[in-house]
Design a protein around this nucleic acid. Structure first.
Length: 406
DNA sequence: TCTGGGGTCCTTCATCGA
DNA sequence: TCTGTCGATGAAGGACCC
């Protein structure tokens, strides 16, 4: 098997899919500004009580710290780590720059997160050379222009390219030749497969399936019985390296939502409704910004014990109006019958999206336009000009001092 | 130990109309 | 007219990803 960093000579015939993944992305961006922290454990995450780790340097990972871990635990595992609160705007800016680099190599770029993307470089061969050479150029350009490293997997399918980039991290490049895919896959633990999380891995291990090779030897019907029709068939195909999914540059949004965890659990329905309003405003603004309207409104309510319920309703007309989202979200919250149950998180999401331009607004007989959309569009304009939160619903305005009604 | 926020996709169950 | 079936759709929940 080719070794990371030493495989430029490997046979990349037919391997037109690249998976590019930034190494410890948020942490690397922060370290550009604080080079004195290079080589030390650094953790990116909200320092408050209820945060999780968003990114950690490889030095911090050596202590067992990893992303999505509660910050309290990360601090216990690595008390000497420097904690840096996240600056999402900064990361988004670097992400845009990196994606622009990808687009100079091929238009076939499918971003899957702010720090990773699939590229199909099949059409760039004549102009730029073989895929492995293109991967090397991308890595070099990202370091030169942004001062951060990335790892690239090169293969004949998306999921093998992704596994390859994980395999050669950090700062590596790995080509998996088409005729070596099975050799590469079968020794890997089954949890390495995309789509096998903690739960699925547990149920596979109960069946004695520990590696991808074990998985490949199990009849599809058995996997489908255990994991469901779709997941069973999908994993059986992946175990033999079969993955026909193309790189799709312009996948339309399917839903837009916002959620918030309270600093401390909240049981007061008035406060919960106020949060639903804030979230509805945020979601509606994003719908309008993206030119979407949506028909299905759902709320997510997580109790103090972490049990989560969701309720949804499909409207007669799609909307991008916060007041409509808010009214629906409140109805759903009330209908859930939680009374004064303490909640740690509430969320509002809109699904069934369609382009705003295609939506037809049908007024019922005798119904009059409420004018909320126009009011909210005016709020959008004010926000663009003077900043967010310059215009707010009265109930979201903080009182000037304690005890004063808003 | 104590679990963010933004998403996608899948499964199961209920309902409704043909 | 009644009953059973089937597909579409909606709702709820769960697993997973970064």
């Amino acid at each position: 098997m080719p070794r990371p960093g030493s495989d430029l000579g490997a046979d990349d015939t037919g391997c037109t899919i690249l998976h590019v993944d930034m190494d410890a992305f948020y942490a690397s961006v922060e370290l550009r500004e604080r080079p004195e922290l290079k080589g030390t454990p650094v953790v990116i995450g909200a320092p408050g009580a209820r945060g999780v780790v968003l990114s950690a340097t490889y030095e911090a990972r050596r202590f067992g710290v990893h992303s999505a871990m509660p910050m309290t635990r990360a601090r216990r595992l690595c008390p000497q780590a420097v904690i840096i609160p996240p600056s999402r705007e900064k990361y988004a800016e670097v992400s845009r720059g990196v994606m622009e680099i990808f687009h100079t190599f091929t238009p076939e770029v499918e971003p899957i997160a702010s720090d990773e993307a699939f590229l199909d470089v099949g059409g760039a061969r004549k102009r730029l050379g073989p895929p492995a050479a293109i991967a090397a150029m991308i890595r070099e350009q990202v370091v030169r222009e942004h001062g951060i490293t990335c790892s690239v997997g090169v293969a004949n399918s998306k999921f093998v390219a992704k596994l390859a980039s994980q395999h050669c991290k950090p700062d590596g490049l790995l080509v998996v030749p088409a005729d070596r895919v099975v050799d590469f896959l079968h020794p890997l633990p089954v949890g390495a497969l995309w789509g096998v999380g903690e739960r699925t891995e547990q149920s596979l291990v109960r069946l004695g399936i520990r590696t991808v090779g074990d998985l490949a030897g199990v009849p599809v019907a058995t996997l489908q019985r255990q994991l469901g029709q779709a997941a069973g068939a999908h994993l059986a195909a992946l175990a033999w390296g079969r993955d026909e999914r193309p790189v799709t540059p312009h996948a339309p949004d399917k839903s837009i939502g916002a959620e918030e965890t309270f600093a401390t659990d909240v049981g007061d329905p008035v406060k919960i409704r106020r949060e639903l309003l804030r979230l509805s405003e945020r979601v509606a603004a994003r719908l309008r910004e993206g030119g979407h309207v949506g028909r299905t409104v759902s709320v997510k309510l997580r109790r103090a014990d972490f049990s989560t319920i969701s309720r949804s309703r499909t409207l007669r007309e799609p909307t991008d109006v916060a007041q409509t989202l808010y009214a629906t979200a409140c109805d759903l919250y009330t209908a859930a019958g939680l009374g004064r149950d303490r909640l740690r998180l509430v969320g509002v999401r809109v699904e069934n999206l369609s382009p705003a331009g295609e939506a037809t607004r049908q007024l019922g007989l005798g119904e009059r336009e409420t004018g909320w959309r126009e009011a909210e569009q005016a709020m959008d304009r004010a926000a663009r000009r003077f900043g967010r939160d310059v215009v707010l619903p009265a109930s979201l305005v903080r009182p000037p001092f304690d005890g004063m009604a808003p």
